[in-house]
Every structure is written in C-alpha cells, then in structure tokens.
C-alpha cells in the first residue's frame, strides 16, 4: 500500500479550516486515502469526523496511506503537499485570523 509521511504545517494542526481543506481534497481523489498518526489506527482522510478525532497538532507527523490503484501516487503527493502547507495562514476574509 503506497504511503507517505509528512509533518503538519498548519499552526492550528488538523483542525477547523485546515481539516476542512484536507477532507475536501481527499474526497476528490480517485482512490481511498487513509491517515494515521503514530502507531494509531488509520482513519479515512475524507471524513471530517475522523480527521478531527486524530487530534493532530502542529508539527506532528502523520502518515497517508493510499489504496494501491491508479492515481495513488498523485493523490499522496497532493494531500501531502496540502498537509505540509500552512493552511490557516492569513485568510484575507478572516478578521484577525493571523494579523494583529
């Protein structure tokens, strides 16, 4: 099963907005992708509930597992990039999101 390990880039961890963006991206993939933290049980990356339940904080390492099928590598690449990015970085529409 193709895997990829990545460090969470968002300062809030996988909560709120970053979690929502990840879940949406995972749902768009042609293959099922799971997410695990440490030795924990992998959970569905396209489930907000599951992603939240990981309680993944900033800087922790998570592992993506893709179903071994066409598009797996690309799915891992896209989701790993997303997780590594600072997704709760300044959102223009959010008053005081990171400013101030």
């Amino acid at each position: 099963m193709p895997q990829r390990t990545v460090i969470i880039g968002s300062s809030q961890g996988l909560h709120a907005r970053p979690a929502k963006l990840l879940v949406e991206a995972a749902a768009r993939q042609p293959v099922q992708v799971l997410l695990s933290i440490g030795d924990g049980r992998p959970v569905r990356a396209d489930s907000m509930l599951s992603v939240l339940s990981l309680g993944a904080v900033a800087g922790s390492t998570v592992t993506l597992h893709a179903e071994d099928a066409d598009g797996a590598e690309r799915a891992l690449e896209e989701l790993a990039t997303l997780i590594a990015a600072d997704l709760d970085a300044p959102d223009p529409a959010v008053p005081g999101a990171t400013d101030a």
Binding site: R17, D46, M48, D91, A97
Partner: peptide
C-alpha cells in the same frame, strides 16, 4: 456577518456529510 462565523459554518457543513457518520 463575519468570516470567522463563515469558517465555522463551512466546517460544520463538512461534518454533516461525513462519510463515517
């Protein structure tokens, strides 16, 4: 009325269609 409120609602919207639920 605020973008923070909008973000909270969008995250809730995602929970409502959660495949595990």
């Amino acid at each position: 009325t605020t973008a923070t409120a909008a973000d909270v609602l969008l995250a809730q919207a995602e929970l409502a269609i959660d495949p595990v639920l």
